[in-house]
Design a protein around this nucleic acid. Sequence first.
RNA 1: GCGCCCGUAGCUCAGUUGGAUAGAGCAACUGACUUCUAAUCAGUAGGUCGCGGGUUCGAAUCCUGCCGGGCGUGCCA
Length: 587
Amino acid sequence: MSIANIKTEILSAMEAACKTVFGQRPQNLNLNYPPKVEFGDFAVGCFPLAKQFRQNPANIAQSIAAEIQPNESIQNVTAVGPYVNFKLHSSLLFGDVCTEIRKKKAFDNNNLGNGRRVMVEYLSPNTNKPLHLGHIRNGVLGMGVSNLLEAAGHTVIKANLVNDRGVHICKSMLAWSKWANGDTPESTDTKGDHFVGEWYVRYNQEAKKSPQLQEEVQAMLRKWESGDPATIKLWEMMNQWVYSGYEETYRRLGFAFDVFYYESNTYTLGKDLVQIGLHKGVFNEAASGAVIAPLPTDEFGAEKDGSQKVVTLLRNDGTSVYITQDLGTAKLKFDDHQPDRSIYVVATEQNYHFQCLFKLLNMLDFEWADGCYHLSYGMVNLPEGKMKSREGTVVDADDLIEEMRQLAEDEIRRRDTENTLSHEEIQKRALAIGLAAIKFYLLRTRPELDINFDPKESISFDGFTGPYCQYAYARCASILRKSKNRGLASIEPDYSLLGNTEELELLRVLIQFPDVVAEAAGEFTLARICNHVFAIAQAVNQFYHRHPVLAAEPATLVAARLALVSASAVVIRNSLALLGIEALEEM
RNA sequence: GCGCCCGUAGCUCAGUUGGAUAGAGCAACUGACUUCUAAUCAGUAGGUCGCGGGUUCGAAUCCUGCCGGGCGUGCCA
């Protein structure tokens, strides 16, 4: 029997008991998990029934529990306070869970999304500087949400909207053409994005001394917009340097995209939508000549003087602004890929922008506007305050990865006392562990919270971390490897021999996995996955510590514990995969 | 001023569609490696859930008023 069937059976038993006792079907029953293994495997709270039948929930629980008879699945039913707790025959539950997980390589979760299409836009960097820690937070969130939705049966289209034009880009271009003397990433042996970033910093240094540089930058932007061949050529060359650098960083971090949009192609979009809005009468022309959209007071409040809030869509010279372009891009995305949902992974400082954007799409009567969602995440702060790329107070993505990789490598070498590991193996593990530490650290808290990142204290490998979860997996893998040489494959597991506290705890967290994935996918909360995979890893480590697997007696118990270990390994590996973290066979 | 977000142990955070004794990790202290990997495990200690009211059989969770912090707040992106 599958876990889903077991749950259905419990709810049916509840229903039948309600009919017998109260003569009515129960409403709104939810299957939950008791807080402690001693209470049982599943629980149903009787609070909705208390309302429905106007009785004390504890009394209801009592009479229902007395009504449900044990059978081949249910071992016993007890009322504890307002809860009806179900204890199942452990041989059945362990057997079903282990078999189901191993057969399907995890639980079956892919019916939730029903094939709905979701576009996830994330990262969207500016091509004038390298990626920093804030981008990593964005990227792991974007990849994580994509993985999660895919695992839940959605078709996901991952998009990167590259901000490849504008004054900021011209700044590095101007600095390079003035002072670089033809240096290139190759000639200086510098990663392309870092190379360009250095010229961006140089510009900002020089601009402090020579304010007239600002005018030169504006002039360069005008030349770019008029299509001046030399300017375009310079722009293409420097962007190419940045892209080659980015690609390396993406590869290391496991960021992938199905589609790239470039702002140089999209920045003129949206003007036609402004015309539609004017025609509909939802936008209008201000006295200054700019085109504006009034925002409904009930949702946006009013200005200080009590007047209605507005957003500008076209400047009084007729040129478009950021939100105009985003209107156009939103429609372009829909026309290109027909997503049912369009998720924007963008920092929290743009909350108001997206609130406006989605409202404007709604005012334009796009029926897909309701599917737009801003997945907003907080800033990453340093001990000295906000990260500012102009002032160089950023944690560079490549530097951080290298630093964490190095710390992991030190740790690996410290425990490899016999020098048995190859250089390649050490490098592979060190990178995987370092990345696990970073990604888990960034995903384990709710996205809307700001993160204070202290480079000195760095990110830990102990406790509630990615490496801890990897370690639990490696222990499982190690046991499974060793079991292969011992001719255990033919032995039939006796699941009735399982049932100690640690085994029950492990079973408990494994059973909950599909529900956790479903909830996490519904709310886009990777932190739930972090919490849960950590709970499983904890249960594995506790079990590992107290109960031998390979040395257990009799062999049928060995087989049963092996099945449990194998199932745990599958769920940990799958959970880590959702987080973009590699499960290592050895650590 | 207004809008959104946040405030839980010394620190970082879970828990928020109201429900079982508010949970982890780090740091501190004590203990466990001849044993399937000690990146581990067991234990001790640590809480007016920012403050005050309210709703409820029941509030960290909902409502309300304060206090503190963050991010925004029409022709930047």
